[in-house]
Write a protein that binds this DNA or RNA. Structure first.
Lengths: 234, 234
DNA sequence: TTCACATTTTTGTTGCAACAAAAAAACATG
DNA sequence: CATGTTTTTTTGTTGCAACAAAAATGTGAA
């Protein structure tokens, strides 16, 4: 039987390692809103929280710091960062460039199955908002975007975009429920789906870019109602 | 005396840590061409190489894997990756988007001092090529690009671009001296400098994008003269 | 040689303890 | 009360050893 050509690797990290598990677990908690900006994370605390020894806990924290999901506030203290408006602006610009690219490249690979998947995800988003399950809505929103980006077939690109989401993700928690109540995203998501159906590259890019811009404006408006430029409650 | 407002952090990693030192050291070696694609890096080997214990060595390797500068070729083996044409294409697309953005944003902040610095760096590149010091040329080339990108004032952007360079950087070693002998970059660099002088945003972006595209074509051409799609000598 | 299998060596992971340094708490001082 | 100082506690880093698993090596048969 003909064998597939040697892949040579490009393996992801082994999923069975404790450090990898700890990283995934903490990442999920961060995105889901288990921590707030300013919260301090210590090795021993994470170690107990996940019931592993200090080494995997340390690995997880180090990796999250590299990702930018956590930052040092002092030589021996890592915290969930307070996202400032300036940071958000910068990351938004990068998202526009990279996710616009991913959206444009996704058009070619979009098929019947993808459209259905996207429709389903959008329905989940709507349902979650109806029932005020805001974290679920945010989660499905992420799934919606990445379902599109995955079509680009570019693993490096996917990975970089994901770290950008991680950097801002933790700070979203303090913005609910105002953030999602206007449902700014629904229109853009429908536009994206239609662009994929029509195989319209420019429209797909525009839909995603609009979604990102609208989200940014929304966050800016909410943060304006709080103290200067700081995007978190406290 | 008036104190500066609390920065709250956004610290980089402490430079005095052994793991950080090991990381920097290995990164430098990778860029400078101390290793070739396919070389295996073990914790204990790095530990001896840098005369530190296994923990910092392990930290450094893990971080380089996260950066994409090293990859797993098996559950217990990390190697310097063989960059395939497909990977190079993808990273080139991301570079176009991100470095184009950085170049465009840099125009506003470009001043007299910057221009002089860039002229000096270009002179260093030319001199290095004249004397066939190809690694130095590559190094100064990097300095030239990042001197521009730094003007954008966007630390997140800088950091992401740097990891993209790291991903391809290690594979450049095998391409000398052919890669630089045509001096494809000189014209684009001059165009970039002039764009900064003229405060021409579109021209700055175009100059950088052209430089990236020309470099990509150059690499593709060289790799075509070797076996299929594999961008390294062996 | 080529392939499959058994054996030996190498290697990453994990847990842990010592230590210095930083953070937090307690305290004193104005 | 606020502020500077000392004491106590917490914390990350580093080195190291045990272990299981993977890689390298050796072996033998076809």
């Amino acid at each position: 039987m003909e064998m597939a050509p040697e892949d040579e690797g490009h393996h992801q990290h082994q999923p069975n390692r404790l450090g990898e598990m700890a990283y995934r677990n903490m990442k999920e908690r961060l995105i889901r809103g288990a921590f707030s900006p300013g919260d301090k994370l210590t090795i021993r605390a994470v170690s107990e929280m996940l019931d592993v020894s200090t080494t995997p806990a340390r690995d997880a924290i180090n990796r999250l710091v590299i990702d930018g999901a956590l930052i040092y506030s002092g030589p021996k203290t890592v915290i969930v960062p307070h996202l400032r408006l300036l940071d958000l602006e910068e990351i938004t610009q990068m998202r526009l460039a990279l996710e616009g690219l991913a959206a444009a490249l996704s058009v070619k690979a979009a098929g019947e199955a993808t459209i259905e998947e996207l429709e389903l995800l959008q329905a989940k988003i709507d349902a979650a908002l109806d029932e005020k399950r805001y974290f679920d809505a945010l989660w499905h929103n992420k799934e919606f975007h990445f379902a599109i980006y995955r079509l680009s077939g570019m693993p490096h690109l996917l990975q970089v975009i994901e770290t950008l989401w991680l950097r801002v993700g933790a700070s979203f928690n303090g913005l609910y429920p105002e953030f999602s109540e206007t449902r700014y995203g629904a229109h853009n998501h429908r536009a994206a789906i239609e662009a994929l159906v029509d195989k319209d590259v420019a429209a797909a890019r525009a839909a995603i870019e609009n979604d990102i811009r609208d989200g940014f404006r929304q966050m800016k408006k909410i943060s304006a109602g709080r103290d200067q430029g700081n995007l978190c409650r406290r």
